[in-house]
Simulated scan of single mutants.
Amino acid sequence: MHELGIMYHIVKQVLRVVEDNQLEEVEAIVLQVGELSSVIPRYLKACYPAAVDGTILESTKLEIEELPANGICQACGKVYALTEHGGKCPVCQATEHEVLSGREFFLKEIRAC
């Protein structure tokens, strides 16, 4: 489970921002995770308490926004949800596509009180 290492890295980044901006309290950390990224949101949530234990972030909430995997069909140009349609274009049934979104992993927001 590489999510624990990822959470420790995110927490380290957030703590640096907290220190640099002299924040006294953080309400929430917001992450964006694409459906096709190698990161599993429920594992991030499970690891979060251990990653923030003993830090100023201990009482913060972790919010995760899941970003859909969208692709464009190489045959007909239709943009569609890849996972919803199993990678097959709902218009022409072609399987050749270009991924437009869904691989992202971002620290979107540090919400201070």
Results as ranks from 00 to 15, higher is better:
Ile29Val: 11
Val33Asn: 01
Leu67His: 04
Leu57Thr: 02
Glu25Trp: 08
Gly5Tyr: 08
Glu19Val: 01
Cys113His: 15
Gln74Lys: 14
Arg16Asp: 15
Ile6Cys: 03
Ile110Tyr: 00
Gln13Val: 15
Glu104Ile: 04
Ala75Cys: 13
Ile40Tyr: 11
Leu62Tyr: 04
Leu31Asp: 06
His9Val: 15
Gln93Phe: 13
Ala28Pro: 09
Leu67Trp: 02
Ala50Ile: 13
Leu57Asn: 02
Glu66Lys: 09
Thr95Trp: 14
Lys78Trp: 11
Ser101Cys: 06
Pro41Cys: 06
Phe106Tyr: 14
Glu65Val: 12
Gly5Arg: 08
Leu100Met: 13
Met1Asn: 13
Asp53Ser: 14
Val14His: 00
Val91Arg: 14
Lys45Gln: 15
Ile10Trp: 02
Ile72Trp: 07
Thr55Asn: 02
Tyr48Pro: 01
Val79Lys: 11
Pro49Gln: 07
Leu23Tyr: 12
Ile64Phe: 00
Cys73Gln: 05
Pro68His: 06
Arg103Ile: 12
Glu65Ala: 08
His2Tyr: 02
Leu36Gln: 05
Ala112Ile: 02
Ile10His: 02
Ile40Met: 11
Gly77Arg: 05
Cys89Val: 03
Leu82Val: 14
Val11Cys: 06
Leu67Ile: 15
Pro68Phe: 06
Glu58Ile: 10
Pro49Val: 06
Val39Ala: 08
Lys78Asp: 12
Gln32Thr: 10
Leu57His: 00
Tyr80Glu: 08
Arg16Gly: 11
Leu107Glu: 09
Ile40Pro: 03
Thr55Glu: 05
Lys61Tyr: 10
Glu109Trp: 03
Asn21His: 10
Leu82His: 05
Glu63Tyr: 09
Ile29Thr: 04
Gln74Gly: 07
Ser59Asp: 14
Cys76Asn: 01
Phe106Asp: 12
Glu27Thr: 11
Gly102Asp: 01
Arg103Trp: 12
Val52Tyr: 01
Glu66Met: 09
Tyr48Glu: 05
Pro90Glu: 06
Thr55Trp: 01
Tyr8His: 15
Cys76Trp: 01
Val52Asp: 03
Thr55Leu: 04
Ile110Lys: 00
Ser101Pro: 04
Cys76Val: 00
His97Gly: 07
Ala75His: 14
Gly87Asp: 02
His85Val: 00
Lys61Asp: 13
Glu58Cys: 11
Ile110Pro: 00
Leu15Pro: 08
Lys61Glu: 13
Met1Phe: 06
Cys89Leu: 03
Glu66Trp: 02
Cys76Met: 02
Val11Trp: 00
Leu44Gly: 06
